[in-house]
Each structure stands twice: as C-alpha cells, then as structure tokens.
Amino acid sequence: MTSTDQTDTAEASGLSRRDLLVRGGAVGLGVAAVGVLAACGASSSGGSGGSGAAGGSGSGGGAAGGLAKVSDIPVGGALATKVDGKPVLLVQQTAGTVTAFSAICTHQGCTVMAAKTDLECPCHGSVFGLDGSVKQGPAPSPLPPVDVHVVNGTVVAGKG
C-alpha cells in the first residue's frame, strides 16, 4: 500500500492524517506512562550490606513462623521483609537489638532499601539512619516505626 493509498483509506474512514498521528502518539504516551508507573511501584530488594527480602507476612512466614532470624539481620544494617503485606525494614543497630521501620518513603511512597550503613530511597535520593531519622531529604519526616519483638532468636510482628 502506498502513502497515498493509506491517506485515502484514513480519510475514507473519517480520520485525517493528523488525527491518526495524534491518536497514535497518545496511545504511545499511555503505554510509556504505564511502564514508568510500574517501575516506580515495583519493590526491589537487594543492595549491599546483607539486605534482601525475608518474605514474611504478618506474624507468619520467614523464619519458623516469624519475620526473620536475628542472625540473618546484619549488625549495623537492615533486612527487608513484609508485615501484613507491607514492606518493612528490620534493623539491628547493635547486636541482639532489633527494631523495625516502614519501608515506605515519607517523601513520595517509594520503597526504601537497606544499604551498607543506612536506609536509602532509590527514587529521589532520601537517606534515613538506622534509627529511621532523615539524614538527607527530600523526605520530610522519619520512617514510622513498626512493632516487632524477638522470641527465641526469631523476630516476630507485634508488641512483645
């Protein structure tokens, strides 16, 4: 089919060449936007310093019905897991003391990841201390704490 034939076909269907190009461009932008939104919402685990997903959910999953074993959380670092389906970072600032924080960045809701000595948001560069405090913005407030406690070397969700 030649260019003239394509134009004639489009015009016969009531659409001008300009309408076809505008509609095609809008569809392309929509597809691109879906890809960008999917990338922003994707959770990722990894990074350095022993971070990763433990796969726990609620008070089940993970290590023997808990979220993780204390021994799996690096001292001076953090481990990613989930509590009630929400991303959480288990932190062991000093040996044997485990705290937890929401892994949802207080800036725009991206998933914060464990790094060597702090917690980092990959989306806009916010950095949080292992105590959840903001070390570098744009995050406006600290990461909210999540209740966890240790039972026989295993971190479990909830107050102890």
Rank of each mutant, 00 (worst) to 15 (best):
C40K: 12
L29F: 12
S48G: 11
Q108G: 09
V155Y: 01
K116A: 15
C105R: 00
G47F: 03
G61C: 04
G30V: 04
G129L: 06
H124G: 07
G49P: 09
V27L: 11
G24V: 04
S13F: 13
G35K: 07
H107Y: 05
G35C: 03
K82V: 03
A80D: 15
N152T: 06
L29K: 02
S133A: 15
V75M: 05
G109E: 03
A103E: 08
P142D: 12
V91C: 09
G47H: 02
G49Y: 01
A39E: 11
H124R: 01
T94G: 05
T94C: 01
K86L: 10
G109F: 04
V134L: 06
V31P: 00
G109L: 07
S102H: 10
V27S: 02
Q92R: 03
T9C: 00
Q6N: 12
I104F: 03
A68F: 08
G24F: 00
T117Q: 07
A12D: 14
G35E: 08
F128T: 09
G58D: 05
A139P: 10
A115R: 11
G30Y: 03
A64R: 15
G85L: 07
L119T: 00
G158A: 11
P87R: 05
G62Y: 07
V83N: 01
T111C: 05
D19W: 08
D8Y: 11
D19F: 08
S102L: 08
V127H: 11
V83M: 03
E120K: 11
E11A: 03
D72F: 11
C105D: 14
D131C: 03
K82A: 13
D72R: 07
R17A: 13
R18K: 12
S126C: 07
P74A: 14
V75R: 04
K159V: 15
L89T: 06
S71E: 15
T7L: 12
V31H: 01
S141W: 02
G158T: 02
A114P: 08
G76R: 01
P87N: 08
T81K: 04
A139Q: 07
A103K: 01
A157F: 10
G132T: 02
G41K: 09
G158R: 01
R17Q: 14
I104S: 13
